[in-house]
Design a protein around this nucleic acid. Structure first.
Lengths: 333, 333
DNA sequence: CTAAAATACTAGCACGTGCTAGTATTTTCT
DNA sequence: AGAAAATACTAGCACGTGCTAGTATTTTAG
């Protein structure tokens, strides 16, 4: 038997107080003297005591745990996870991650989190069928990040893709580009709003524009495929807007392999402002979404829903901004 | 109070049996009739019962939980996580992930996992100071993946970097390359063994070789920096070996921006066989490491150590192989 | 100076499950 | 046919903590 890790009782014994007092000290409640608290802290330190989170979760009225489902194969969720930890800690919640992958689907990841009695779930870039989401909503409060849901299903938060692509097209128009393209990753989540933002804005500016539809598991590959389509067309556009940064990486790489210079011959814009965009060989002008803002809205909304389950669902959009780097230049005459 | 989730007692009531029998059925133990089991399963289904993992962990002699610390900002850990889930499930263990990030250091991630009373930890690509690792070893069994440790500290598993770069240089030599370079990411974990493998093998083949030292937070950036150094040198090597695939991406991209063709003018080899290597515009010849093998060795070793804490530590190396794609061609005469 | 109130604690049950020890009932053995 | 053994269950304690309800001791109020 190796139950050697210290418990509250061990700490209490060493500190010469009752077990309950140790609990009060660790919960930061009132009702103890500073001297006693000091003795408790010293004893805890000495024994290497850590509260048993399983026991806390079991005993508490609310477990104070939020479950997060994510796909490590995609890059955008990863930036959000960091923000979720930070924001959750401020709100007094623990976060438990559950990854999906080739051998582990979302159902399995969700069931594990329910096993830990999470009070609510955050699904990042979920591809779960709508019917399953509706069923899940009857089981546990959740919110979707990066996939906008109909308000009849559940809460969701996304960056404002329509506005983001509006900013992109505005920028291109100001720089004199009048023949532009949008690379539409058809299987990407929230693809529709980004596409709509592009089309609406291009139409408003009366720009000559085309849509290149591509579908691929690897997003970078979709960019490369789009590059081939563009190269095979009668003439290249002077600027290309992409669905996301990874796609832009594939597009730019494939164009350069073909001897096309970016940005001299073709300007390229991304979306997400992920780490890819900051590479020196990319220096990608892109739409920035604030991961902290996304995490804050998601968690606050989720916690609100946990306490008021009857709340009407809403689809929130976070603000976006254009980060100008060097992948876009004014149209050469 | 919202303690509405079903417990074993609820299931037992509906099935018309004792709570203990429900436990037996879910643990797959013997000692119950098929009819009773069927009633239990039906009741559980109907109530949407899921075992409370916190309660299990609390009550069990061993929690059957393995904690995994990883950094979502790096890409190689992510492929391993998927394998860990799979292998752990086969061995009857749960996995809890704990991410580190800008606002969350390894200490914090580890303490959370200890809070869940993990029986052991897996540190992926850990950068914890040796002194801290030594201290940690007295607290809890752990194994390091992707960072080789001195056996006086703790167990570790890495891919065999020396052998991997041996394979790379052999391959280049066979193809007639006699002027080769290695891009050495000095701050990368396990950099030394890869460097040594390159130097030893190049020396053995009597090849003209040079080492380009680069240091960077973003690995891709180190490749781009190396490209600038190569371009500034008197002559380009005919082949370049990189410390990892992401670095190769940066190197190739920067070379192409400068008008150098890969592989026609310079062949490039990566390391890791990550998803980057499979992009069509990369088609990177690279050293493959088997994530499943890594996960299996790590978990088996860790579980062995959990049951026998006095076991001597060892530094394991997994097998590697060369995946030939299109970024390497024979030296043109 | 006594009563009330605040302070500084302690007692004990409960959370949902695993585990050891029981108790009927049926089956097998000689 | 009677005893032993296997089968199919049930009882009850325990894990480490949170929470409600206490009990001394000190401080404040009138």
């Amino acid at each position: 038997m190796k139950k050697n890790r210290a418990t509250m009782a061990d700490v209490a014994k060493v500190a010469g107080v009752s077990r309950q007092l140790v609990g009060f000290v660790f919960q930061g409640k009132s009702g103890f003297s500073p001297e006693a608290a000091a003795r408790v802290h010293k004893a805890a330190q000495q024994l290497g005591y850590r509260p048993n989170l399983a026991a806390q979760s079991l005993r508490r009225d609310s477990t104070k745990i939020i479950g997060v489902v994510f796909d490590p194969r995609e890059s955008s969720p990863l930036e959000i996870i960091q923000s979720l930890y930070k924001v959750a800690a401020n709100l007094g919640y623990e976060v438990i991650l559950s990854a999906i992958g080739d051998d582990r689907d979302e159902d399995e990841a969700i069931h594990e989190l329910i096993g830990y009695r999470c009070e609510g779930l955050i699904l990042i870039a979920s591809r779960l069928a709508e019917a399953k989401l509706v069923g899940l909503a009857t089981e546990i409060p959740f919110i979707s990040i990066g996939r906008q849901l109909d308000v009849s299903i559940a809460d969701s938060v996304s960056s404002d893709g329509a506005m983001g692509l509006g900013l992109v097209v505005d920028h291109l128009a100001v720089l004199g580009h009048s023949d532009i393209a949008y690379i539409n990753a058809t299987t990407m989540l929230d693809a529709d709003s980004r596409l709509k933002g592009f089309v609406d804005s291009a139409t408003r500016h009366k720009l000559n524009h085309r849509i290149i539809d591509v579908a691929s598991d690897y997003t970078e590959e979709s960019g490369a495929a789009a590059a081939q389509l563009l190269l095979a067309s009668a003439s290249l556009p002077t600027a290309v807007a992409c669905s996301n940064d990874q796609q832009a990486l594939g597009l730019i790489s494939a164009l350069r392999v073909a001897g096309i210079s970016v940005p001299d011959q073709v300007s390229v814009v991304g979306y997400d402002d992920s780490r890819v965009a900051r590479f020196s060989f990319m220096s990608l002008t892109t739409v920035h979404q604030d991961a902290v803002e996304l995490a804050e809205i998601a968690l606050n909304r989720l916690i609100e829903r946990i306490s008021k389950p009857t709340l009407a669902a809403q689809a929130s959009l976070t603000s976006v901004s254009l980060v100008q780097r060097k992948s876009v230049v004014a149209k050469s005459l």
